[in-house]
Amino acid sequence: MIDFELYQQVQDFYQDYAMSIDSEQWDKWIDFFVEDCVYKIQSRDNFDNNFPLSALALSSKGMLKDRIYGITETIYHEHYYQTHVVSTPRILKVTENHIESEARYAVFRTKQDGIAEVYNVGRYIDRLVRVDGKLLIESRRCIFDNEMILNSMIYPI
């Protein structure tokens, strides 16, 4: 039985994470992760067939920082807005310090032409850890159904 307080905390966590990305507060995004973390955006086809390749696979907070430097300074791209709609979480397992949970997401992309597109849909598969009463990400895998990416994928999901 999961108490409501924990459920509420996890739910807030998912919504805050989405807000940090949608509002492009990249430093805040990085701070959702522990130092030794895993962050992957992987197609469902690769995931289901046990292919290790991801569209993006970062395995330390340092790599997350390098990615943010990439999207803000080095990767040439046209800016786009993202809006994440994240479902209520499913909490799968709770231990003293860890929570395993999932949520479904849909990301809409709006480019300069002003047209919103369904950009990426899938689910988060997460392992969260409690540090000083706060939840942080040890591992987040974004497993997306629509494996045909609409040209490029610049920002995190």
Partner: peptide, 19 residues
């Protein structure tokens, strides 16, 4: 696998080309 991050639709390098 780590170097694959440079390539593909999200690649540190190749995303530029698609754009």
């Amino acid at each position: 696998l780590i170097q694959a991050n440079l390539f593909g639709p999200a690649g540190f390098v190749s995303a530029d080309d698609g754009e």
